[in-house]
């Protein structure tokens, strides 16, 4: 006992900080050193706060119609900083609630995609064999689908899709990237010595998968999820612009673009604001996602 204690590296003991710094904590430190990532995080933050606090931020109800104040330019009448639309509804309020819808659908659909993708990818990569072959062919099939066209057909058949059915449809059509990445990660991680060690300790498949392998795939999953939220917001805007997504009276940015189309000449701001909101949000999420990727692992290919 004596000799082993004597071999302790004293200097290392003295110099180190108290308590452990997890790999996640270190990744976050790297994240905050990148300007674009911080900008992306800021924009994402604005989206999230706006979405969550919409009822308190919006100056008016998004559905309040006003015959007296139709198609007012920004700043033309008091109380409507960004003007009003063809029904006299406050544009700012609709933008704010639009953020809520985007956030809800973006996160909801991404949640569905991530859960599906992680399950399929983890099972595929961990168990291998015929199950893997089968799931890979299913994934191939989904990848070969023209996502937008399928979504258009399904929502068109449903006529008035609810929010829940929208994010289920969008998520169901978008899990393949997650599953591919998770499968690849699990496939390589399961040969790792720490996975072998866990098995030799008597850990079962569930424990190895959930305690050892999946936590080590979290980096790529979080990055993919962030980028997916951006993709979903665009997806939703596209569907809504075709009149197939979020249904009135909910104000979605895509729907606002559609409603503004006939008045493009006389009231361009009706298109500019939702258009800018979409571009800015998607850009912000992508910056943030890229920043996360660089922070977690610069070599990661997502």
């Amino acid at each position: 006992m004596k000799d082993t204690e004597a071999t302790l590296d004293r200097s290392e003991l003295e110099g180190a900080s108290p308590g452990g710094r997890s790999p996640t904590a270190m990744a976050l430190r790297r994240l905050f050193r990148s300007h674009t990532a911080v900008a992306g995080l800021a924009i994402t933050g604005v989206l999230v706060v706006t979405g969550l606090l919409a009822p308190w931020i919006a100056p008016h109800e998004y559905w309040r119609i006003s015959r007296e104040a139709v198609m007012q330019a920004p700043g033309a009448i008091p109380g409507h900083a960004l003007g009003t639309d063809e029904l006299g509804r406050d544009v700012l309020s609709r933008l704010v609630y639009g953020a809520q819808i985007s956030l809800l659908l973006g996160v909801g659909a991404t949640g569905v995609a991530v859960v599906l993708g992680v399950i399929v990818g983890a099972v595929s990569g961990y168990f291998g064999g015929w199950l893997d072959s089968l799931l890979q062919r299913v994934t191939d099939t989904f990848m070969a689908m023209p996502t937008m066209l399928v979504a258009i057909s399904v929502t068109a058949i449903m006529e008035r899709p609810t929010l829940a059915s929208l994010f289920l449809i969008m998520g169901f059509l978008s899990w393949t990237t997650v599953s591919r990445v998770v499968r690849g990660q699990v496939l390589s991680l399961r040969e790792n010595d720490y996975a072998v060690a866990a098995r030799s300790l008597g850990a079962g498949d569930g424990r190895i998968l959930f305690r050892h392998l999946l936590p080590n795939c979290m980096g790529p999953i979080v990055v993919l999820a962030t980028l997916l939220v951006a993709g979903m917001i665009l997806f939703e805007a596209g569907l809504s612009f075709l009149g197939l997504g979020v249904q009135p009276p909910y104000p979605s940015w895509g729907r606002m673009l559609l409603d503004a189309k006939p008045y493009m000449e006389e009231s361009p701001w009706l298109m500019v604001y939702p258009g800018a909101a979409i571009v800015l949000t998607v850009l912000g999420l992508n910056f943030f996602g890229d920043g996360l990727r660089d922070a977690f692992d610069p070599r990661m290919k997502v």
Partner: peptide, 14 residues
């Protein structure tokens, strides 16, 4: 039980 060669890969980093 087993003890591994690679002191880096044998411990779960998380």
């Amino acid at each position: 039980q087993i003890i591994f060669q690679d002191p880096y890969g044998s411990l779960n980093p998380r």
